[in-house]
């Protein structure tokens, strides 16, 4: 868990550092300007990362409601 937790830093870097670096329209990705597509990608990645953290977090186990 200790290591997995640090994955949560990545979206902060992706948005706060990545967006200023990729502030451009071309190439369009899925029809969207590059800057927008980049942000969308990080939203999806954030959900994935938080899902991994949730599953690895011992705080979410050993409770009345079992979780697959």
């Amino acid at each position: 868990m200790a290591f997995v937790k640090w994955l949560a830093v990545l979206p902060f870097l992706g948005i706060l550092v990545g967006v200023p670096l990729l502030n451009q329209v071309q190439p369009l990705v899925l029809g969207m300007p590059l800057i927008l597509a980049w942000i969308v990608m990080w939203i999806v990645l954030t959900a994935v990362i938080m899902g991994i953290i949730y599953l690895c977090d011992p705080a979410n186990r050993d409770m009345a409601e079992p979780r697959a």
Binding site: A8, P11, F12, L36
Partner: peptide, 18 residues
């Protein structure tokens, strides 16, 4: 393009909320 900030802050806020 500045409107994209609205899309960006939510996911960072959810990470903090965890």
């Amino acid at each position: 393009a500045p409107v994209f900030y609205i899309l960006s802050y939510g996911c960072l806020a959810y990470i903090i909320s965890y």
